[in-house]
Amino acid sequence: MNAAGSGREDDHEYAAPGRRRGASPHRAVLLLGVALVSAVADPTRLAGRGPAGWLCFAAAVVAAIWAAPAVARRPIVASARLGSRLVRHRNSAFAVGCTIVAGFSDPPVWLTALDAVLLSAYLLAVDAVAAGPVGVRQLRDRTAALAAPAAIAVVLLAARSPVHSGAVWGRIVAALALAAAAAAAGAALWIRQAAAAAASQPEGESRSGSARHR
């Protein structure tokens, strides 16, 4: 069991990062949210939907302006009412809503890629604001920034690959590609963490006897 503090460089890694002057993470998250909702609304077919389509699009943008900014509050259930919970988890509801809207459209290939990249970028940005130092480290780490687009590209290629027997095989191949990409990312991280833990542990001490903190 650890009771003592670690070195000064590591001390502040547990703390939530302070807001840097000039940086406006909330505005960046808001812009990403508006861009995401604009992309999933399929702007290529917006002109043909008439005034109702434009009205729905405007309503979606307004909803994005309300729901997209990151909620950086402690996870405390202040009320069990559905409305209160929806307000509390509006970032998650917004991302899920965008996914559902995208699921019932059939956009061109470039737009599917844009939807997927914007969704991942939005989730990364929300984590950077709401998930404390974990989210900030993830945003600064190149692994996540490279692995997510790579996985999206692999899955999109697999989904669009011409396979026999119609769409069933396409889904299976895409699902296998998704599982393979996640497993590869997880394995890479596992190896990296194990190496880091082994390197940071002094010789002659067992792991359970002297735990260290990052």
């Binding site: 699921g103 939807d115 991942s120 989730l123 899955v155 889904r171 191949v173 590609a177 998704l178 990409a181």
Partner: peptide, 17 residues
Amino acid sequence: RAWLLALAAGPAVLLAL
């Protein structure tokens, strides 16, 4: 629509990482 799995790819990778 198989391409929707691409929307799941990003969050799945972030979970794995």
